[in-house]
Design a protein around this nucleic acid. Structure first.
Lengths: 225, 225
DNA sequence: CGGCGCATCGTACCCAGGTACAGGTAGGGT
DNA sequence: ACCCTACCTGTACCTGGGTACGATGCGCCG
């Protein structure tokens, strides 16, 4: 009713239908109420009301290069959230560096996306755990960059690795191979066991990690979902 | 996905009555519902349930030095939010460096505090605008330590998005959805077309990207392979 | 000792995903 | 006119992946 007046407009600059619809649907839901509007051309960014919240899909073919001066112009009067379908620290830094107020996965889950929107619209900045962790490390020049693992007490176990703790040694082998795209038979041959056993392990893995199939498993293993 | 939403306990380690009561009151309110419990001695941090959310007032007289090993121990199984009544970038860095998941003003307003709690409890990290801005600046001045080579304009270009150019607009939509784990029928419904058509698109996609199935597609899309 | 987790394997069954072989329309370029 | 591409759809078929309902042996622990 009256409530609609304070529904904030959320502009989404993307060439990807899916991205737009996904985010718009979220905004249409009960609680997270924002009103998503799509932008398809860069020019449209120029005349938005001051203070507008704009998501910019950096996979858009017409997205300006980072060196483009338009970025800073926009950032001057807009709150920009950069969306990436393959977030990388370097890319995030580049985006934030030209004035973006947020940088996150274009297909982040609803809770995360809502959080990003809230944080940014409240005037704060947002970057994901990975990037922030790296930024913090960067300052401390002398942090041992042991790629190999084994040290128990790292900075709070990465959430994307949490699933590992749930699996047995054998299951871990099977899970990683399956997540790499290996077939059941292929895994069986490598491990020297029957395909049936591989299936058994996978069933257990799916159950423990609460996923439906090997694709969902792969997404979880690789930190996509 | 059965996620438990029961009463999130929020432990607050502080010697300051005001800080505790302020935050507890916020938690008692309608929406932000957390159950604040006070801790007064450092020892009490040791036996908290794994994953607990703990705010640590760094003005507490018995607060361990940053060099104290207890910090990392706690950070290993707790989510720690460091509270400062006079936030400073250096202090924030120190706190995050010993494993804190958040750093904010002890007297931050309700909205902010709630946001910090939500962000941290969802597994992300939180630092304020000031600190984050500084971290981002810091990176630009001395970019080196990282990938081992090219300090040059390694930034902007995302590595493997070449495949996008090979696909038509429609195929791109289907590909991204499939790579996110969507089923053929699900994709069909979203796009308003037949499952058969989705299959047709996928066949074309597989052919163009030289992959065998949707799992391989997902790996390619997400830059795994 | 009995129970439990873990790893291994068998047979039978269902079905989403993918292929093969067919088309159809619309638009743009030569 | 003709061809090519993008996009759409239908029927039929096969197979790998996943499940259901079992089984065996082993090591650990109260």
């Amino acid at each position: 009713m009256m409530r609609r007046l304070d529904t904030p407009a959320l502009y989404i600059f993307t060439a990807d239908e899916t991205v737009f619809h996904r985010i718009r649907e979220m905004g249409a839901l009960a609680d997270g109420r924002w009103n998503a509007q799509r932008l398809v051309r860069p020019i449209e960014l120029d005349n938005l009301p001051v203070g507008s919240l704009v998501m910019v899909d950096i996979a858009h073919p017409q997205r300006p290069e980072w060196s483009d001066s338009r970025w800073r112009t926009w950032a001057g009067h807009l709150s920009i959230i950069a969306l990436s379908s393959q977030p990388q620290d370097d890319e995030g830094i580049a985006a934030m560096d030209v004035g973006a107020a947020g940088y996150c996965h274009a297909y982040a889950n609803e809770a995360t996306l809502r959080q990003v929107v809230e944080v940014v619209s409240s005037g704060e900045l947002w970057v994901g755990r990975s990037l922030l962790t790296r930024l913090l490390k960067g300052v401390n020049h002398n942090v041992n960059e042991n790629a190999g693992q084994g040290t128990a007490a790292r900075i709070a176990t990465s959430p994307t690795q949490a699933w590992r703790a749930l699996l047995t040694e054998r299951e871990l082998e099977v899970a990683t191979m399956a997540a790499q795209g290996a077939s059941n038979l292929g895994i069986a041959e490598v491990l020297g066991i029957t395909e049936r056993t591989v299936k058994a392990h996978l069933t257990s893995i799916f159950d423990k990690l609460d996923v439906a199939d090997r694709l969902q498993l792969a997404l979880k293993v690789h930190g996509v979902k």
